[in-house]
Amino acid sequence: GVTPDTFPGAPLTAGEVVINPTKGHAIHTHPDSDEVLYIIEGSGVQTVGDSGEFEVSAGDTIYIPRGTEHSTFNTGWRQMRILAIYTPGGSEQGLREAPDYVAVPAGQAPVWERA
Rank of each mutant, 00 (worst) to 15 (best):
L95N: 07
G90Y: 01
E69K: 08
P65S: 12
G94A: 11
E92Y: 11
V36K: 05
R78D: 13
V36W: 02
G49R: 07
V45G: 02
G90Q: 04
P65D: 10
E113C: 12
Q46R: 14
P31M: 15
V18Q: 03
T13H: 13
V102T: 08
E92L: 15
P11I: 00
H25D: 14
Y101C: 11
E41L: 08
E69W: 01
D34K: 02
N74E: 09
N20E: 03
T29R: 11
G90F: 06
L95P: 02
D32A: 09
H28I: 08
H25A: 13
P31R: 07
F54T: 05
G15S: 11
A26Y: 06
I39M: 01
I62Y: 04
D60P: 00
G24W: 00
P110T: 13
F7C: 02
P4W: 03
I85H: 01
T3S: 15
I62G: 10
N74Y: 05
T47F: 01
G107H: 00
G49P: 13
P110K: 07
S71W: 04
I62M: 07
P8W: 05
Y86N: 02
A98G: 12
R66L: 11
P8H: 00
R96G: 01
P31E: 14
D32T: 08
G107Q: 14
G67T: 03
G44N: 13
Y63T: 04
G90W: 04
L95W: 09
G9Q: 02
A109P: 06
P88H: 08
A103R: 08
G52Y: 10
I82T: 08
W112L: 10
I85C: 09
Q108M: 14
I27L: 02
S33P: 07
G94N: 09
D60T: 05
E97Y: 10
V56R: 04
V104R: 00
S57H: 15
G59L: 08
L95A: 15
P110D: 05
G76H: 03
T72N: 13
V17K: 03
Y63I: 01
T68E: 11
D5P: 05
G44T: 14
H70M: 13
E69F: 09
